[in-house]
């Protein structure tokens, strides 16, 4: 663990090429590093620093400002329960307590098997479906205690693998073109995810 793999290094270089100044690519590249290792390892951060000609401390300082970037290991499933106002008004605190009991860990902690990290988060902009949560930043709304238990079962059994990639995977769609380069048109490029906000297809 782990410097960027050759493929990810290539992706990182492509990202750098998108910006007038290379440091702008820092956060997108850190997402890639996190996709690779599940969290930001010191080696990974040092590698990114090398790539962008920064000091590792600057990479660490920047990463640590952001909630989504973890500089310590987390579980394969990051369960983020919102308890901000709209969710709180709709029972989110009770849901969080239930989640803690179900997973057997307090918010902020990771299950012993490394499967789940539970965290209490601020509003995730899904308040129309309060109480809500996200798993690896894939959203689930109107979550009852029973829904939660079902969700945990499904995740553990791998039944949601298509919708919920492992922690760290932010965007499964790759940008196809660099700057000002026209690429041949291709048919629809639907990533296949679904949102509870979608109209039925």
């Amino acid at each position: 663990m782990a410097r960027l793999t050759a493929e990810n290094l290539q992706r990182a270089r492509q990202l750098v090429a998108l910006y007038p100044q290379s440091r702008s690519a820092l956060i997108p590249i850190l997402h890639i590093a996190q996709e690779q290792d599940g969290w930001l390892t010191p080696d990974g951060m040092a590698h990114v620093a090398e790539l962008l000609e920064l000091d590792p401390a600057e990479v660490y300082g920047t990463a640590s400002f952001y909630d989504m970037l973890f500089t310590h290991p987390v579980g394969r499933h990051l369960v983020s329960i919102c308890t901000n106002l709209a969710c709180m008004l709709n029972g989110a605190e009770e849901l969080l307590e239930h989640a803690e009991a179900t997973l057997g860990v307090a918010a902020g902690a990771t299950t012993a098997d490394g499967e789940f990290t539970l965290e209490e988060v601020e509003c995730i902009a899904f308040c129309g479906a309060a109480p809500c949560l996200a798993v690896n930043w894939r959203f689930f709304g109107n979550v009852s205690n029973a829904d939660f238990d079902q969700l945990v079962d499904d995740l553990a059994a791998g039944r949601l693998a298509d919708d919920v990639p492992p922690h760290g995977t932010l965007c499964r769609v790759r940008r196809r073109v660099g700057l000002t380069a026209g690429a041949p048109a291709e048919a629809g490029d639907d990533p296949g995810g679904r949102s509870p906000q979608d109209a039925p297809a």
């Binding site: 956060i27 997402h31 952001y66 989504m68 995730i124 902009a125 996200a134 690896n136 930043w137 894939r138 959203f139 932010l170 965007c171 499964r172 769609v173 790759r174 940008r175 196809r176 073109v177 000002t180 380069a181 026209g182 690429a183 041949p184 048109a185 291709e186 629809g188 490029d189 639907d190 990533p191 995810g193 679904r194 949102s195």
Partner: peptide, 25 residues
């Protein structure tokens, strides 16, 4: 950053838009 699906759909749309000639040169 938390809008994973939004980022994916926007990225996909941008790819389409580039291909369609609505973005780029």
């Amino acid at each position: 950053g938390e809008f994973a699906l939004g980022i994916e759909r926007l990225t996909a749309a941008l790819n389409e838009a580039y291909a369609f000639g609505a973005v780029g040169r």
